[in-house]
C-alpha cells in the first residue's frame, strides 16, 4: 500500500499540480474579468521550456535545481508513504535550501536578492511547520502519518488553530501574494523574477515541476487534518484541499506584496497565536 501511494504521488503529483496551476490561472483570470488560458496550458508551457536551447549562467545551477526537485519528491514520498511527518518537514526545508543555493550560485543581483528573501520566507514559515508536527503528535500520539490517518476522529476537530496557521503560511509555499517575496510571475517588478531570474529553458521547467510536487505535498498536509479511519473522510479531505486552494487564490488576487518585515512579523505572530495556543491547549488537556 505505501509503495502504491508513493508511486502514485511520484507519477501523478506533476499532473495534479499542473491541473491545479491551470485552475489557478483560470480562476484568477475570471476574478480579473479575463478569459484565462486553456486547462492544459501549464503542460504546453513545460513542453515548450524543455524544447528550448539549454542556456545556463554556470555549471552547478542545473545540478542544484535537480536536487531541489528530487528532495521535494523524497519529502512528498515520505508523507504519502505514511512515514514520520517531522522528518518529511525537515527534508522539505533541505529541499528549499538547494533552491536557495541554486539561486545564489549565480552571483547575480536579482537572483541573490530572491535567494535572500526566500531564506527569510523559510525562517517565517518553519516554526509553524514544526509546531504543527508537534500538534499532530499531541492530538494523535504519533508523528507517523500512517497512524495519524487511522484515528477515529479527524485531527482538525482538536487542532483548528494549526489549520488556520498552516493556511496562512501555505501562501508562502505556494508563492502567493501577499507573501510572494522571493519570486514573481511578472518580470517587470522590482526584483525582476527573483530566484528564477537566471533560470531558463529546461532548468526553469525542472523548477516548475518541483513546484508542482511541492504544491501537492502542501495540500497533502492539509488533507492530513481531515483524514480519519472512515472512508468518507477522504472525499471531505479532497474538498477541503480544494477549498483551501481556492481561498489561497482569492487571497493572492486581493492582496498586494508585503515587505519582508511584515511577512516575518505576521507569520511568527500567527504561528504563536494560532499554533502556539492550540498546542498549549492540546498539551494541557492531554
Amino acid at each position: 500500500m505505501p509503495v502504491l501511494s508513493v508511486v502514485g504521488y511520484l507519477v501523478l503529483a506533476p499532473l495534479v499540480g499542473g491541473l491545479l496551476d491551470a485552475l489557478d490561472r483560470r480562476v484568477s483570470a475570471r476574478m480579473q474579468g479575463r478569459q484565462g488560458p486553456p486547462l492544459l496550458q501549464p503542460f504546453y508551457d513545460i513542453k515548450k521550456l524543455f524544447s528550448k536551447q539549454m542556456i545556463a549562467v554556470n555549471s552547478v545551477q542545473m545540478l542544484l535545481n535537480l536536487s531541489y526537485l528530487v528532495f521535494l519528491a523524497v519529502a512528498g514520498s515520505m508523507l504519502f508513504a505514511g512515514a514520520d511527518i517531522l522528518m518529511c518537514l525537515f527534508i522539505l526545508s533541505t529541499a528549499d535550501m538547494f533552491l536557495v543555493m541554486a539561486a545564489s550560485s549565480d552571483s547575480s543581483p536579482f537572483s541573490t536578492l530572491g535567494a535572500g528573501r526566500e531564506m527569510i520566507q523559510m525562517m517565517a514559515y518553519e516554526p509553524l511547520t514544526l509546531l504543527m508536527a508537534v500538534g499532530f503528535y499531541l492530538a494523535t500520539g504519533s508523528f507517523h502519518v500512517g497512524d495519524i490517518i487511522q484515528m477515529p476522529h479527524s485531527a482538525v476537530l482538536v487542532m483548528p488553530g494549526f489549520l488556520l496557521g498552516f493556511m496562512f503560511i501555505t501562501a508562502i509555499k505556494l508563492r502567493k501574494s501577499p507573501f510572494d517575496l522571493s519570486t514573481s510571475h511578472h518580470a517587470h517588478q522590482e526584483m525582476v523574477k527573483g530566484i528564477t531570474t537566471e533560470m531558463a529553458g529546461p532548468t526553469l521547467a525542472i523548477m516548475n515541476i518541483a513546484e508542482y510536487y511541492e504544491m501537492v505535498l502542501m495540500l497533502g498536509l492539509v488533507a492530513l487534518f481531515f483524514i480519519n479511519e472512515h472512508w468518507w473522510s477522504w472525499p471531505i479531505a479532497i474538498v477541503a484541499c480544494l477549498v483551501v486552494y481556492l481561498l489561497e487564490i482569492l487571497w493572492d488576487n486581493v492582496s498586494a506584496r508585503v515587505k519582508w518585515r511584515t511577512l516575518l512579523d505576521s507569520c511568527w505572530v500567527v504561528t504563536l497565536l494560532a499554533g502556539g495556543l492550540n498546542g498549549l491547549i492540546l498539551m494541557l488537556v492531554r
Partner: peptide, 25 residues
C-alpha cells in the same frame, strides 16, 4: 517546544546565508 521551533528557524537562516555566500560562483 516553542523555543526549539523558533530557534530552528533562526539557526537555519544564519547557516544557509553563510553557505550561500560560499557557493556563489
Amino acid at each position: 517546544v516553542i523555543f526549539l521551533a523558533y530557534g530552528s528557524a533562526t539557526t537555519m537562516l544564519y547557516w544557509t546565508k553563510w553557505l550561500c555566500k560560499l557557493v556563489s560562483l
